[in-house]
Simulated assay, not measured.
Amino acid sequence: MCLTPFFSHFGENLSEAEPVWLRKSSCCYMIHIYNNFMNSLVFPGNYQLIVPPEPIIAAPGDDVILPCRVDPDWNAMEKTVEWFRPHLRAPGPQKRVEYVYVHRFRKMDRDMMMETYIQRTSLSEGLRHGDVSLRIHNVSLEDNGRFRCFIPNLSIEAEVLLVVDPDFVKMTTAETVPQRTSPTPDEETIRTGESAG
């Protein structure tokens, strides 16, 4: 199928100065342009944000990552990525959104962000591959709650729950992990909750 009629305003005005291969294969050249154009379009229904179903638990003072990625891979480097607290609104009649982090034009947009998060937040370094995870440094009890990621270009959003628990103790790599041995049938029953026989 030739798409030359669709691109007739491109194909019929080729000058004599253009390479012979271009003049002889203008139909194929136009298909290549059309394919590149179609591949550059964004169809919002084809993308989704992947976040963990369970909450992220941290102790006050911890640095955390709220995992979030676009599936399938999507280059978010030059796009807008917004993280906000859905239950927080600015005081006043407009009740505008209070942003935790805003990425626009390849950088942080500080003018849109809540003061308390400007020095404590950053995005993943994997933006080129759709990783839009939010890093929060030195979390406090005030950070407890839901965080929503929204990507306007794709019209998709997802929420991550952060639980800041003063009694939470995370296991570090410096701690020794006991060696696992093969369990007896009785131990396996206790671990899985199934009967052995």
Rank of each mutant, 00 (worst) to 15 (best):
S15A: 14
R89W: 02
D109Y: 14
S133C: 06
L3M: 05
L49F: 05
R120A: 09
V70H: 08
Q179E: 15
Q48Y: 03
I190M: 03
V177S: 10
D186M: 07
H129W: 06
R104C: 07
V81H: 04
E12C: 08
I33H: 06
G126P: 06
N35H: 08
R110H: 08
E142F: 05
D167T: 10
F147K: 06
E98D: 11
P53S: 11
N46L: 15
R135W: 03
E78Y: 12
S182I: 10
I57H: 04
P55E: 04
P53K: 08
T173R: 12
Q94G: 02
V177F: 13
R191V: 07
A58N: 05
C68N: 02
F43A: 08
T4L: 13
L127W: 01
G197Q: 08
K79Y: 02
Q48H: 06
N138H: 05
V102C: 15
R148C: 12
L88T: 05
S140P: 00
A59R: 14
I136Y: 04
E12L: 10
R23D: 03
R146S: 12
E125K: 10
L162Y: 04
P185L: 15
V97E: 06
T176R: 11
D167Y: 07
Y34K: 13
P55A: 11
T172D: 08
Q94D: 14
D167V: 00
S140W: 00
M108Q: 15
T121H: 03
E188N: 03
G130W: 05
F105M: 10
T184L: 10
P183Q: 09
R128E: 13
F37P: 00
E159N: 14
G130C: 09
P67N: 12
R180E: 11
A158V: 06
T184F: 03
R148G: 01
D143W: 04
F10T: 00
D109G: 07
E115A: 11
E157Y: 10
P55R: 03
M1C: 07
